[in-house]
C-alpha cells in the first residue's frame, strides 16, 4: 500500500470511528501494520483533529484511539523477535499536549472525563508516575489560588490556556497532565464565577437554556450554527456520547477476569492462587488481630478447664 492510499484509508477510518473497542483496535492495527508510513499517518490524525467539521464526539474518540494505538504499539514491540520498534510512540507522546488542546478546544470541556480516563491509561502504558496529578485532578477545589479566587470575585474570565506556558516539564505526558488539570481548573473556575455572578432565574427554564446545547438544526442563523458545530454539542450528541460511554464501560468490565498467564501453562498456578487471595484480603488490622487472639485464648482456657486433671 502506498502512502497516499494508506493515508486516505486511515483518515476515512478516523472520521467514522466509534468508541467500540473493536473499532478502535482495528484502526490501531491498521496504523501499526503500515508503520512505514508513520509520518503520513500521524499527520492525518492531526488533520482530522484540526478539521472544523469534525464533531467533538469524534475528537474525543480519537483521543481514545491514540490511547489504544500507543498501548498496541508497545505490545507488539515488546514481543520477542518483534520487528517493530515502538512505532508512533515517540511522535504521539511529544505532541500529546497539542492533541489535548485540540480535543478540549476553548472553554468547552465536555470530553474532559474521557480524556482524563485515556490519559490515565496512556500514563500507565508509558510508565509515567501520575498519582500526584490524579489526586490533584479529583480535588480541584483546593487548587484554586488566592489570586484566582479574587479574579472570580472580580468576575474576570479564566485566561486562555496556551501550550507555550507549559515548557518546563521534561516528559510530555506530564505536560499533558498539567494542561488537563488547568482545563479542569478552568472549568471549575468558570462554574464558580457563574454561581457567583449570574442572576438566579426564578421561573421555568427550557432544556436548551439550562444546558445551552445547540438547538437541533432549525435555527435561523444556520451559518452561525455550523461554524459553531465543532464547539457545542447537540442534545442528540450528548445522548449518543452517554450510550457510547456506557458501552465502553461495559466492555472494560468484560476483560476483568482475564489473567496474564504464560503460554504453556493453562491451569491455575500456585502463585496465581496465592496472589489472588493475598490481594483479595487486606491486612489484619491490629484490632482484628487482638480480638482474634482474645477469643483464641478464651477457647484455650475453656478447653484447659474441661480436663479433670491439670494438664500442664
Amino acid at each position: 500500500m502506498d502512502s497516499f492510499e494508506a493515508t486516505t484509508q486511515f483518515s476515512q477510518m478516523l472520521r467514522n470511528i466509534t468508541p467500540v473497542m473493536q473499532n478502535l483496535t482495528r484502526a490501531a492495527h491498521f496504523a501499526i501494520k503500515n508503520h512505514e508510513q508513520e509520518d503520513y499517518l500521524f499527520h492525518s490524525i492531526i488533520e482530522v483533529l484540526d478539521d472544523p467539521n469534525t464533531e467533538l464526539n469524534t475528537k474525543s474518540t480519537i483521543f481514545q484511539f491514540i490511547e489504544v494505538l500507543m498501548h498496541e504499539a508497545f505490545q507488539v514491540s515488546q514481543q520477542p523477535k518483534s520487528h517493530y520498534s515502538y512505532p508512533y510512540i515517540h511522535t504521539l507522546k511529544s505532541s500529546l499536549p497539542n492533541i489535548l488542546l485540540k480535543v478540549l478546544p476553548g472553554a468547552n470541556n465536555s470530553s474532559l472525563h474521557n480524556v482524563y480516563n485515556s490519559l490515565k491509561n496512556i500514563s500507565k502504558t508509558c510508565k509515567t508516575a501520575y498519582e500526584e496529578y490524579d489526586n490533584k485532578y479529583s480535588s480541584i477545589n483546593t487548587l484554586l489560588s488566592e489570586a484566582e479566587l479574587e479574579n472570580i470575585d472580580a468576575n474576570i474570565p479564566y485566561p486562555d490556556i496556551k501550550i507555550e506556558d507549559e515548557i518546563n516539564a521534561t516528559d510530555p505526558v506530564i505536560t499533558t497532565w498539567d494542561l488537563l488539570i488547568k482545563k479542569k481548573k478552568q472549568s471549575q473556575y468558570e462554574r464558580l464565577r457563574l454561581l457567583k455572578h449570574h442572576k438566579v432565574v426564578e421561573g421555568s427554564v427550557s432544556e436548551e437554556d439550562m444546558f445551552s446545547f445547540q438547538p437541533n438544526k432549525t435555527t435561523k442563523d444556520q451559518a452561525d450554527a455550523s461554524s459553531n458545530a465543532a464547539l457545542v454539542f447537540t442534545k442528540k450528541q450528548i445522548l449518543m456520547r452517554m450510550e457510547d460511554d456506557r458501552e465502553s464501560h461495559k466492555r472494560s468490565k468484560e476483560n476483568l477476569w482475564v489473567v496474564n498467564r504464560p503460554k504453556d501453562s493453562n491451569s491455575l498456578t500456585e502463585d496465581e492462587f496465592l496472589v489472588y487471595y493475598w490481594n483479595k484480603f487486606g491486612n489484619v488490622t491490629e484490632e482484628e488481630d487482638k480480638s482474634f487472639r482474645e477469643s483464641l485464648n478464651d477457647l484455650n482456657a475453656m478447653v484447659a478447664q474441661s480436663y479433670k486433671d491439670k494438664q500442664f
Partner: peptide, 30 residues
C-alpha cells in the same frame, strides 16, 4: 428546574462525575 441548579454546598463532588462537563448547567436556577 424544580430543585434548582446545585450550588457548591449542595453537592460538592458533582464536578467529578463523568458527564458533568457535558451537562453543566449554564444558568442559575432557584
Amino acid at each position: 428546574n424544580l430543585m434548582g441548579t446545585p450550588s457548591l454546598e449542595d453537592w460538592p463532588d458533582i464536578e467529578n462525575l463523568p458527564w458533568f462537563e457535558m451537562l453543566k448547567p449554564k444558568i442559575n436556577k432557584s
